[in-house]
Amino acid sequence: MRGIRLAGAALAVAGLVAAACGGTTPTPASSASGSSAPATQTKTFTIGFTQSQTGNQNVTSKRQTEGIQLWVEDVTKAGGIKLKDGTVLMPQVKFYDDESKTDRVQALYTRLINDDKVDFLLSPYSSGLVKAAAVITEQNGRLMVTAGGADDVTMEQGFKGVYQVYAPGSKYLIGAIDLMLKLDPTIKKVAIVNEKDSFSASVVAAANPYAKSKGLDVVVAEGYDTGTTDFNPFINKIQAAGPDAIIGGGHFEDGTTFAKQLFDKRVNARFVALLVAPAEPTFKDIGDAAQFIVGPSQWEPAAKYSAETAKAANVPYRRSRTPAAPTRRSCRRRSTRSTSCCSTAA
């Protein structure tokens, strides 16, 4: 289950290496080692990135690293990546703790590029850190795949070597609103409360007008600072406004705390959708407060990808020789019966 959930990170690495093998990377693999069998040359290549082992992003960032490590493990077990000329590429990773801080990210990506001389770069987790890393990779003329940032603004900065794996943040809660209206068309009033970081702001900047375009009355629309732990002022406002639904949130820590405090105050909303936190398995640690909170996901293991489902979803269908990757889906509902995992970016 975790393997599927981490497919996002693994797919990012797979895409990056596929691109590299196609000769599109500006930096060829530089470190060669290992034994060479007859007609086979084995080379190692290093993927560098930072992980938030500490700080606000530590929980979700760890999942991203686990996904990358899962991919490395799978490829290593399979004997590496075999190229047409007989060369075998064996992956390895190099990563440091960025402490969820942008200044650490910039120092460490400089180190990965100039001192460690890694062959490929993946992004850190969360949009703020991705933007910080992108400045360094751009300055050094390096390519970076963003594996954990979805803020639209990142891709509007004019970066030339940054590639995004995830759906843009502006799409994150659109599916939640659609799902909400499909499940309960009588919902009329919605409260939007979000973290005031660029990712969450870009999500609600799209969700707010979309909700209005669907005839919903946005009765509360407020942001809270990153690191907020006391949501009672928001919750009192929400209760007074009497919304039928609440959408918003930000990242894991604040989303979890918000969900817990909503439950403690017995907020009577029929639908709650929060960013990032519900997709994290440890979200269930808050007990009953985690029940029936909806969250967006990038890959959904329960979704089927077939000619029929593709046609129904109005997306192109391509048959693949490899096992189908979990397909992208807008939302899932968390309940005691459905605790499937998925991958989210921020």
Partner: peptide
């Protein structure tokens, strides 16, 4: 904003105070 939030907010604030 409705004044319904005033009492719970005042109580929450005082307690934290």
């Amino acid at each position: 904003m409705s004044l319904e939030a005033l009492l719970p907010s005042a109580i929450d604030g005082l307690m934290l105070g």
